[in-house]
Amino acid sequence: MIDDELREMFTEREPFAPDADRTTGRILRGIPVHRRRTRQRWAAAALAVIAAAVAVPVLAGGADGPRRDALVAAGDTHVTLPVTPTWLPEAVVTRTYVDANLAEGVWVVDYDFGGGAGGVLAVELRTSTKPPVIDPSSAVVPPTGPPVDVLGHSAAEYERVDEQQGEQSCQLLWQDGRLRLSVRARAKGVTPGVACATARQVARGLVERPMELDRPIRFGLMPRDYVLVQAGTNIEAWCPRTGDNQHTPRCVQARDAASTPTANGRRVTVRGQIGWLDRTETEVILVVPGYVEVRTPTPAVDPAIAALTDDDLIRLAESVSLRRGW
């Protein structure tokens, strides 16, 4: 019986759970960091409230004026990776994954080969224009080998081998002016060192030429003055100009809901399909199974900030265009 096999399998794996003492230490070290960040976020939100309180009467032209959050056509923002690869493993790319976080200055492109590139599963290119945030609670990893030369720059190399899965991954990390670059390769069922050899070859083939990234999911409408902060293969997020990331109150995020079966909330209709709109303590979520999920955080500080109505959310969801099969 598969039920019994599953239960025995779980029991067998229990001894491999992480060490509780070490995790406790990481949690306790992480709390002050998280608290500090939360305070900064609330301070930013409070400033935004004050700014909005001052700006709304002016922009809206008084109580009879147009709503500040009236939806307009979303701008056609181009998202580009600052570099272009001239060499990739010779194989069909089964899927390209993109994640551009414009607010954080991080761009990621991940080419998936599905194991068809001589055991190379995927190659990930990542660039960042901001220095990494050092979180003392994070895992710390020193380079696993000597520095590697990448087009005259010294790159740190990190190799990781998962013997259980028979998988190896290798990341090269270096700085070029204000740009921080990373190339990571993953391989499976191949001789040791293949992932690192692939990562090095990809890294040495990068040229300084912007590469336009795909936006398979995109909003057609947005509240006025919103800007694109994240574009990805199955996510897009927009925020008010004052918002720093998609977790800021009033930011709006869309995800592909291709495999979402159903959801909680009030039944609504979006493009003739059944959807579920749920206002929780922390966010408003509109799920249209098989199509799209739109969500926006709800600020607890001031309900006046939650200016997006249910109708706004439905119109936003209806404006989302999806192109699958990437």
Partner: peptide
């Protein structure tokens, strides 16, 4: 995806990790 690499800070000491389970044991 990629969370581990995003969160990992490539500096300082290596924390002790448990050994990876040997598939042969299962």
């Amino acid at each position: 995806r990629g969370g581990w690499f995003r969160r990992a800070v490539p500096v300082a000491d290596v924390p002790e990790r448990e050994s990876v389970p040997d598939p042969a044991e299962s």
